[in-house]
Design a protein around this nucleic acid. Structure first.
Lengths: 344, 344
DNA sequence: CTGTTAGCGCATTCAA
DNA sequence: TTGAATGCGCTAACAG
């Protein structure tokens, strides 16, 4: 079926010249008379000619499109990453195909197929919390399509990754809790298949060790990031014979949920229990008490991952270096750990 | 440049049959011997063959891709709409190309060109707050590419649109403020070029009229949705000789900002001033006091818009009906208008 | 049921 | 500097 859009042929006919000349004029080829080029450009403009990327892609075997596959789209984190990534992509003349997986492994696999079918030039991936098998991403490497992971990365694949210093940040967060005098620090951790969960957990453990605080496994709960379960875990912790005096949550949505539950329980934050989150999501600054958390350079993560990915574009697969970029995340101290005295 | 991916030719050669047979087998054409099809499918599976959508699109002149152009990606609203839209698209075998405009008209125009170059089969659009000229979208109609607007719609274009009953919802919100005894109700409105701003404004005005409350233009401020300016507007209102006893904000981010400022000013909410927002964004339920607002069926908006758009796909342009779907938005009453008595 | 041929829109050889 | 011819990977029309 013929397209109903303007093509090079239309321009060529109108101008009574060959398609190849028109093509050359349009693509900025040097061997075209200035006058000819001007005529072509003018008519193209007038007819609102738009290059058909499909045919160009078919020939060049490049689509100038990057796939971005995300675990979810609900928290403010991933959309912001996309903004950074898209900015960098646009700057280098690339479009972006975004898809989110509702934290489902099956959807992730399906989305990876969509990316392949659309012949993206590369993919930027953050894994779902369910993902344990990486064959669908390894297939990209086999087909020489570059993959860059960010945030939720795959450890066993030797490809570039962009992460924040989760370990250090978690360490600092817990150290902060210790420094304000807390000793029974609970950790509501993420699922252990996620590297970030494990790193944050390690930071937590090592901070306690450094200050010779015995690690009480009773205070460490691993959960699947399903927010509706936070209530159960928090209640469980608060019902312990010796309840925690602080809580380090794996992320902000979890911490925010916990704050609301703890307030309903009639406990004071931070006096009875101090709380720290991770990511500085929207809302963390105005929940009461405001949440002490770790701020991640969100857009920067997207921009960097895209930069790394596009950097692989013209290189042979043998030159792909599994560079791991670690960006700094910072502790932001707010009222959930250090109460401000302000009149209400 | 040859692709380094498996093609139909590879399979045909290996199996010593014609490309057309392989193609037919792969696409589920009826006229293929079961045995032949089985052989092809098996080898395709084994070689991890992936159909090249580019060439198919070039032939069929359909990309099975829908563009979604958004004004921003920061508030939780638009990403959620995308989730709904993407679900429906996937259900019907379509991919989605998402781009956001940072509320910039120029970026919107640029993004529309990207969509054209990528030959999307249709676009789902919500305008930036700057957009006053719609030529770039009219060009789509001229090229027979269907356009559906949602949320921030273009009134002068006769295409399908998905909106919520902004007028009614605003009316109900203000009526609610009146019913709890407020009389000097201010409105921090959105830019008047946005239809939603005007509709919400009209709902506000008509509610006051219905209850014979004189409209005080002093209490109506139009602003550009730049949150950093909320402080100025709120202070201005509170400094009036006769300050407002209620505030209807054009959206939740604005209302949340206002709440924080008013609290710092030492005023009580809702006693001194009650506040209502619009959209029920993330955070509105846990800011203190929790925000009375209008809940929009966010995913439903995305799903419906995509449905409308895909519904136009096989139809001739003459059959495109400028159907306007209006979804219901509901008032959610929280503590920013009706204080709950709870011990702290 | 299977093979052959043409062509989608364009960039890119090779000739002129 | 320009034109003619080839083909990217695939589907569809036409034969056999």
């Amino acid at each position: 079926m013929k397209s109903n859009q303007i093509t090079i042929v239309d321009i060529a006919n109108e101008l009574k010249m060959s398609k190849s000349t028109v093509s050359r004029a349009l693509t900025g080829h040097p061997n075209v008379k200035t006058e000819t080029r001007a005529k072509v450009m003018e008519l193209a403009e007038k007819l609102d000619y738009q290059r058909n990327m499909l045919s160009i892609s078919l020939i060049t075997n490049k689509t100038k499109t990057i796939g971005i596959v995300l675990p979810e789209f609900i928290t403010s984190f991933f959309p912001q990453v996309v903004v950074g990534a898209q900015e960098e992509a646009a700057r280098q003349g690339y479009s972006v195909l975004v898809s989110q997986c509702n934290e489902s492994y099956d959807t992730e696999v399906a989305n990876s197929k969509v990316m392949l079918a659309n012949r993206v030039d590369g993919v930027m991936v953050s894994l779902t919390k369910e993902t344990l098998n990486y064959d669908h991403w390894k297939a990209f490497i086999r087909k020489k399509i570059p993959v860059v992971f960010f945030n939720r990365v795959c450890e066993e694949m030797m490809v570039p990754k962009v992460v924040v210093n989760d370990y250090d940040a978690a360490f600092k967060a817990v150290e902060h809790l210790i420094q304000i005098g807390k000793r029974r620090i609970a950790h509501l951790a993420g699922p252990s298949q996620l590297v970030i969960s494990r790193k944050r957990m390690n930071g937590y453990r090592d901070a306690l060790k450094k200050y010779d605080i015995p690690i009480d496994e009773e205070l460490i709960l691993e959960y699947d990031l399903n927010l509706s379960k936070v209530k159960m875990y928090v209640k469980h912790l608060m019902d312990l014979d010796s309840p925690p005096d602080a809580l380090f949550a794996v992320n902000d949505p979890t911490a925010i949920e916990a704050i609301q539950i703890i307030k309903k329980l009639g406990k004071r934050i931070p006096e009875d229990i101090a709380i720290v989150g991770f990511s500085d999501n929207y809302g963390s600054s105005f929940i009461e008490p405001s949440l002490t958390t770790i701020a991640q350079p969100v857009r920067e993560i997207g921009r960097t991952a895209m930069e790394l990915l596009l950097g692989l574009m013209d290189k042979d697969i043998s030159e792909w270096k599994p560079l791991i970029k670690t960006l700094d995340a910072e502790l932001i101290i707010r009222n959930s750990t250090v109460a401000a005295d302000k009149g209400v």
